[in-house]
Computed example of a mutant assay.
Amino acid sequence: MLVRYFAAAAASAGTEQEEVVAHATMTRSELQQVLTTLHPVAPPGEKTLAQVLPQCSWLVNGVRHQDPESTIAPASTVDVLPPFAGG
């Protein structure tokens, strides 16, 4: 699946996008755990991805997924969007 990070999430991950290998459907919370495992340390001056992700909105194929137990198919595109301009 393609994961695209924006703003503070991109800064914390150290990349704007990456392919995450998923052989089966996973929940958003499982994906979040995978992402924090892939990026355990933040670049200097940034928060860790584990600190940023809980504040983010998640779009899966352009549709907002608020429920951490919502499922994500392996071929999905996931956008991780932190709050912008304080909200």
Score class of each variant (00 low, 15 high):
G62I: 09
T15L: 14
V41Q: 13
A42C: 13
Q17M: 05
A13Q: 10
Q51M: 04
Q51Y: 01
A11V: 15
A9I: 12
L38K: 11
T25V: 10
R64L: 08
E18Y: 03
S57R: 05
A50H: 02
P44Q: 10
P40G: 03
L59W: 02
V52C: 03
H65D: 04
G14V: 06
Q51H: 03
Y5G: 04
L31D: 00
A50T: 08
Q33N: 12
A8S: 13
A42I: 05
T71Q: 08
G14K: 10
A10Q: 05
V21K: 03
V60L: 01
A50S: 07
W58G: 00
S57I: 06
K47Q: 14
E18W: 05
P40D: 07
T48M: 03
T27M: 04
S29Q: 04
R64T: 06
H39V: 05
E46Y: 15
L31P: 02
G45V: 02
E19T: 14
E19C: 07
D67K: 07
H65R: 14
Y5M: 03
E30S: 01
V63E: 07
V20L: 04
A24N: 13
G62Q: 03
Q17F: 06
I72W: 02
T48C: 13
Q33E: 12
Q33A: 15
L35S: 00
H39Y: 06
G14T: 03
A8C: 09
G45P: 06
P68G: 05
N61S: 10
A10G: 10
T27Q: 10
